[in-house]
Amino acid sequence: MQKAIDTSAICKRFGNTTALSNISFSVNESEVFGFIGPDGAGKTTLMRIITTLMLPDSGDINVLGKNCRTEFKELRKEIGYMPGRFSLYQDLSVEENLEFYATVFGTSVKENYDLIYDIYSHIEPFKKRLAGKLSGGMKQKLALSCALIHKPRLLVLDEPTTGVDAVSRSEFWDMLGKLRQYNITILVSTPYMDEAMRCDRVALIQNGNLLAIDTPGEVRNGYGRKLFSVKSADKYKLIIALRSLNETITSFPFGESVHVTFKNDRIPENLNSLLQNQGINDALTEETEAGIEDRFLELMQTAGPSFVKTTEGKAARQ
């Protein structure tokens, strides 16, 4: 099967900053592929290279069977791209934005209406409204409609869910799921770990390095130890107490509980009494499944201290 994207050993530097070092991965046709990583990890740079907006310093990249360096003109016709800041014309209405992008790509709104119907119908009642006056969720839907209007084979979405509320985010992922039926390959980047579960496959990216590439389930399964969650009303005290124990390897707050790993991968027998010694009487401990974030954290730690300090990455995003 032909790969939608195939890269080997991509490197990109901006001055003294290494934005991407030795990135190799491939994306299958019509899968939803997610780049998960914090701000400054290199996601945007990678997306720009894939959309032919930037050239890598070294390494090969083929998108939809075409070479990004030499065949970028043909390739650009088949890519739908939604940059980090929704690229809409604020002073054009919803309708005008959509029509503009349709003409630019040599098509019409009518021609591919079925493709965007599910998304556009949410905002069609407000089609006369200026894009600048839309809420975040509506802007996001309009930007997606615009990126899809020429029926691209590859859809590249750079942080489409940043700054959008939870409901719109959830709806957005539902929409991406529905696009699968049109055989469109979708590439999404996001700093939000929980969104990884909505992708077919994900790549965890940090400091310009790929930490892992797999299905979200397998990424979680890669977690090396048994993970336990401990709950108590006083979380701060609990973290400190757990960290002071000999059996504890790591102890981090996670949501309502504290995620802990123990030596021997089991709860120390006298855990409750040890905690009681430190004034915690309500501790409730149970084994829990590691999430993407837990795995990401583990990978960052095993990758060594250079990963823990996130390097200057904002420059790469400008």
Binding site: L53, R76, Y81, P83, R85, Y89, Q90, C146
Partner: peptide, 13 residues
């Protein structure tokens, strides 16, 4: 500045 140039560059224009 508004990022629309990125999309125009990626388009066949």
């Amino acid at each position: 500045e508004f990022g629309t140039m990125e999309v125009l560059l990626v388009s066949p224009l």
